[in-house]
Design a protein around this nucleic acid. Structure first.
Lengths: 221, 221
DNA sequence: ACAAAAGTGTTCTCGCTACACCCATGC
DNA sequence: GCATGGGTGTAGCGAGAACACTTTTGT
């Protein structure tokens, strides 16, 4: 019959941010284990009196964050050989830090941590490249029917930045006039009245989210 | 610090079918444990050398099925008190049996099994009512952007049956002419040429899926 | 002055919505 | 013959797609 050898339950966390130009994920360098020295998503074993959601928030803090402005369970990965040391299943979460939070400083269980472009990361530990890809796909999907973009963008953003986020995640280009018309007609953003200058071109209008929560809306496709 | 007390990993399986009138879920009566005598989704602990997907297929067979025509991971449930006996996390899967499969006969670990209307089931064991609801929501969501309906419908079906499925899951009514026009324009079904008679009204044309796999398409909303 | 990015409107097409009556069968 | 559910078409409207030039700033 089945062996009662119980796998370890763990949480792995994809922390994503968008700075107006690039979508990045926060990776840490592992200090121990067979993947020592490799980059990985922050993660932890599930503790006894802790739900996955609790564990996910703990992992987020161990990575150096305080309170995310968004967190969501993504998928559970359970391939038998995904951890060469011991049988482990990992439930992946993704989270976005709020705008203006201090730089992430991971706790001592990691060598260091830094942000990496989501579309070019390679050679992650475990199956974390796959996990990162699934998170990306989830973000891309949710851009089309929620206001998740407003949680990923900084508090004040330009419409060009917003369009860049959509284009990066969908892999296709949009017409500038149609994009702006669509977004403006949706009643989800307001002009701040302020402008962003300092770039070597005409300053852009800054906008902010009307509501800072993820809502279901019909956007593209 | 965290206690290394490792939770049990389990799979719970929502098996759904649609008979043309009602969406049903297969439930078993538990023989053991604190929920003895109660109805529950089929489930099992994850075995040592088995991925979640393997375990899900095993649970499907233990429930009396052979090979599902659709299976998908839905969500992982991990509330600390979801199992009063022991700390357990459950990854929920949903599956649909193929049309014409023999009636389900669950294995000896259950007292019996039967199909129950998804919208009226009550008093399930553990958090299985919640799991069943999340599966339902997943089905409702996927009806709008995939051809999952064709996997839930019998091999030959009428357009009225298909419309009933959409109406039950979405909770709203559709115009018959518009629904048929939309479905026919999508190039996903073909007429069989056969009709369904025996009802006390005009016989209905029977259709079948052009392809028997779930594809991404834009349908409603 | 020129390079760089911001900003802006109109036309056309196609898909969605609303809507009502006749048809084939069982009883 | 009547009750039941099956089947069909059209007109109007709104949303999405295609498309190019002017404006404002930095250097």
């Amino acid at each position: 019959m089945k062996k009662p050898n119980n796998p370890i339950a763990a949480v792995d966390m994809g922390i994503f941010r968008f700075d107006g130009e690039r979508l990045s994920v926060f990776l840490v360098e592992l200090l121990h284990g067979s993947f020592r020295g490799r980059l990985a998503l922050p993660g932890a074993r599930l503790a006894a009196e802790e739900s996955m959601e609790d564990a996910a928030l703990r992992v987020y803090r161990e990575a150096g964050g305080d309170t995310p402005c968004f967190i969501e369970q993504v998928y559970t990965f359970s391939a038998v050989d995904r951890d060469p040391r011991s049988r482990a299943i990992a439930t992946a979460y993704m989270a976005f830090p709020p705008d203006g939070c201090p730089p992430f400083q991971p706790c001592s269980k990691y060598a260091r941590g830094a942000w990496y472009d989501v579309f070019t990361v390679r050679d992650l530990a475990y199956d974390h490249e796959q996990i990162s890809r699934v998170c990306r796909q989830r973000i891309a999907a949710k851009l089309n029917y929620t206001t998740i973009a407003l949680l990923l963008l900084p508090e004040e953003f330009t419409l060009t930045e917003m369009q860049t986020l959509y284009e990066l995640c969908s892999g296709e280009q949009f017409d500038k006039r149609n994009f702006r018309k669509k977004i403006k007609s949706m009643n989800i953003i307001v002009e701040t009245g302020r402008q962003r200058s300092g770039r070597k071109a005409r300053p852009a209008m800054l906008y902010r989210a009307k509501r800072r929560s993820m809502e279901l809306v019909s956007l593209f496709r």
